[in-house]
């Protein structure tokens, strides 16, 4: 396995297809841990994790508060909770106020993951309609992680990847295919 051991992915409007394609492409036994913080419509509280799991070869689950995370699994931030990565490789959840009108907040997951996982972390911001994720991706980069933004041209909704690109200063603007290729190279 290469130097990266964790992947944190943030997405909002227009990101569902990319997320499912990425999960679909990762093989059984893929060794990195994946964290997913995805905005969803307020009334869509259930069924989302099942929809993602349907095509994924790796296990996708919504973590319980204070539960540990393991290699080769994908964890989805539960609806209406912020998802933090805590020191000691456990999750914590919170229902404090939305950040950037979002709960879960991509920034909060990214910032906490960057703080704990440092240069072992890959951060990916996908399509979306608001500014969430930009500050978080900058933290990933500033803490020595690898920052990726979905190609602006490919993104269905461009605000989120554009803001993330500018604020983080990363030059890694990847299409979904390139993201997949990059993730497969980390095995």
């Amino acid at each position: 396995m290469g130097k990266y051991k964790y992947v944190v992915i943030g997405g909002s409007a227009g990101s569902f297809q990319s997320v499912t394609r990425i999960l679909e492409a990762l093989p059984v036994g893929y060794p990195l841990t994946i964290f997913l913080t995805l905005h969803r419509l307020k009334h869509v509280r259930k069924g989302f994790v099942e929809a993602l799991a349907l095509k994924s070869k790796i296990k996708v689950e919504e973590p319980k508060d204070k539960s540990p995370f393991f290699q080769g699994k994908a964890y989805l931030a539960p609806a209406n909770y912020h998802l933090y990565i805590e020191p000691g490789n456990t999750f914590s959840l919170s229902t404090e106020e939305p950040v950037n009108h979002s709960r879960p907040s991509i920034d909060l997951t990214f910032e906490s993951a960057a703080y704990v996982l440092k240069e072992k972390l890959i951060g990916i911001v996908l399509s979306g309609a608001n500014r969430d994720g930009a500050a978080g991706l900058k933290e990933v980069k500033d803490n020595g992680g690898f920052a990726i933004v979905q190609s602006i041209e490919e993104s269905q909704v461009k605000t989120m990847p554009e803001t993330a690109l500018h604020l983080s200063g990363t030059t890694n603007e990847f299409t979904t295919d390139q993201i997949i290729e990059f993730l497969l190279k980390q095995i």
Partner: peptide, 9 residues
């Protein structure tokens, strides 16, 4: 208290 969420508060 949980470290990260407390720092955020």
């Amino acid at each position: 208290y949980s470290e990260k969420s407390f720092a955020r508060r």
